[in-house]
């Protein structure tokens, strides 16, 4: 069963934070690809910078994913993977309200994700029931033929 995560984190407004947010956005795909590939449960992941109402700068950073299975047991794999851990840690570091205590272990990471997740399982439409593994297997088989 596919589930959603929408991580919405308002960020500080100083110039350095805004620059860091842009960097996180620009490097996101490269940073997380290996980790998400290894997990084989994430269908899509994307990151967005939410503009301020004034049109200048960014109010928040938002990470959206759709993944197979339950969220909490699989957060460990993202915490253990250097690329995804770095991406999530970077977002936590620029949060307007930083996690307290700072995220230094898996429990802190689980809390950070849960505290900033806007979605529940019932919020999401899915056009198909297949998992990433099933889709990859089907297409690799088709390719082999």
């Amino acid at each position: 069963m596919t589930n959603p995560l929408t991580l919405y984190v308002p960020i500080k407004q100083d110039a350095k934070t805004q620059e860091t947010a842009q960097g996180i956005h620009d490097n996101f795909v490269a940073a997380v690809t290996a980790g998400l590939d290894a997990s084989a449960i994430v269908h899509y992941a994307r990151i967005s910078l939410i503009p301020n109402a004034s049109g200048e700068g960014f109010h928040a950073i938002m990470l959206m994913t759709e993944f197979d299975g339950p969220m909490n047991p699989y957060l460990k794999f993202f915490w253990d993977n250097p690329g995804t851990k770095l991406a999530f840690s970077a977002i936590a570091a620029i949060a307007l309200t930083p996690p307290n205590p700072p995220v230094t272990d898996l429990t802190g990471f689980e809390n950070f994700i849960n505290n900033n997740n806007l979605n529940d399982a019932g919020d999401m439409y899915a056009a198909y029931p297949q998992t990433v593994k099933e889709i990859e297997k089907a297409f690799s088989t088709a390719k082999a033929h």
Binding site: P101, E110, N114, D120, A121
Partner: peptide, 14 residues
């Protein structure tokens, strides 16, 4: 500081 799974309990959506 406790893990969210413990805080939210077994009947929670998570």
């Amino acid at each position: 500081g406790f893990p969210p799974t413990f805080k939210q309990g077994p009947a929670s959506a998570g």
